[in-house]
Amino acid sequence: MVPTSYYILLSAALFTIGVLGVLIRRNAIVVFMAVELMLNAANLALVAYARERLSIDGQVLVFFVITVAAAEVAVGLALLVAIFRTKRTTDVDEVSTLRG
């Protein structure tokens, strides 16, 4: 039986990769993927703990997280299309007229 701590270490690794993905990559779509990665890392941790505690609650929570992630990406991509239509770019840094 794989000890829970391995799962948690994996989810922590996934989470940090997701965070770095958001910080480093310039393409909006890749940023969305990185955010998805972070959320799935959380799901992994939830499932791992649920298994360890043999309580169904953890797994139920995963569904909530998945639905929310889906909604977010949907709106995100819609926005991306809108921006692409006007500015012909998906680069996050291009979009920086508001400052100061």
Binding site: D93, R99, G100
Partner: peptide, 17 residues
């Protein structure tokens, strides 16, 4: 403080982190 507000999303994320 206003200088810090550079307008780039990634700098905001960096400050966040």
């Amino acid at each position: 403080v206003r200088e810090l507000q550079s307008g780039y999303v990634r700098t905001y994320a960096l400050v966040f982190t």
